[in-house]
Computed example of a mutant assay.
Amino acid sequence: MRGLLRASPIVVAVALSAALATPARAQCVDRGERAPPAAISAFVSDPSVLLRQSKNDRDKLSGRLTGLLVTDIAALAPVRDMLREASQADRVAIGAGLHRAEERCVAIKPDVAHRISEFVNKLHDGAVLKGYFADQDAASVPGPGSSAPAAANNVPAGSGASAGLMSGEWKTELADPFKPVPLPE
């Protein structure tokens, strides 16, 4: 018994160091961008709470769903229950939110992005697919003044003349205000 008690602090120390050594990015986003744990647990216990919170605001619905999914993929399973109570327009917004979550996860956690994609494919819900693919198409449409898709030019989407003063993947870096404006070809 005494040997077991001596080994216990070592086990605790190893477990503590393993917990502290885990990366700050447990899911698809950094800690500062994650949804609060209370929001995730409220959604998991009652998925319709998201529909009630974002009454008739489709952007808010898709944004909040994206935030929950990129924070914790466990929020994916309750989406099926939420769809049972969602209107047709809400289903389209949910599809857009699922696609945005997949896009945010694809570079950091490709396995999570794959789970979202598989979930959408298994739903067989036309409205969800409509929102999912509409958001996908909107992400691939070239910006104003651009004749080719951004991927073909190796330039991030929206980095043309109309991009404004912010640049970077999430528009968090200041763009060069003296950069020459690309001329149309």
Rank of each mutant, 00 (worst) to 15 (best):
R2G: 06
G3T: 12
L4D: 00
L5Y: 10
L5C: 04
R6N: 08
S8I: 08
I10Y: 13
I10H: 08
A13K: 03
S17F: 07
A18Y: 09
A19Q: 07
L20M: 14
A21C: 01
T22H: 05
P23C: 05
A24E: 09
C28S: 04
C28R: 04
V29S: 02
D30N: 12
D30V: 11
R31Q: 11
G32N: 09
P37N: 10
I40M: 11
I40E: 12
F43R: 07
L50A: 02
L50D: 02
Q53M: 09
K55P: 05
N56G: 10
N56L: 12
D57N: 15
K60Q: 13
R64K: 14
L68G: 04
L68Y: 06
L69P: 06
T71C: 07
T71E: 07
I73K: 03
A74S: 15
A74H: 10
A75F: 02
V79P: 00
R80E: 15
E85V: 11
A86C: 09
Q88A: 14
A89K: 14
A89F: 08
R91F: 04
V92I: 15
V92M: 10
A93Y: 03
I94Y: 01
G95W: 05
A96Y: 03
G97Y: 04
G97W: 04
H99G: 00
R100W: 00
E102V: 00
E103I: 02
C105S: 00
C105A: 01
V106A: 11
V106N: 01
V106D: 03
I108D: 10
K109D: 07
P110F: 01
A113G: 05
R115T: 08
R115Y: 02
I116P: 04
E118A: 11
N121D: 13
N121R: 14
K122I: 06
D125C: 02
G126A: 15
V128T: 08
L129A: 04
K130C: 03
A134G: 08
D137A: 15
A138I: 01
A139I: 06
S140G: 04
S140C: 00
V141G: 01
V141M: 12
P142V: 11
G143K: 03
P144S: 11
S146H: 11
P149A: 09
A150V: 05
N153D: 09
N154R: 14
P156W: 05
P156H: 08
A157Q: 11
G158A: 09
S159F: 13
S162P: 00
A163K: 08
L165R: 14
L165K: 14
M166T: 12
W170D: 15
K171S: 14
K171V: 05
T172F: 01
E173Q: 14
A175C: 06
K179S: 12
K179A: 15
P184M: 05
P184A: 12
E185N: 11
E185L: 10
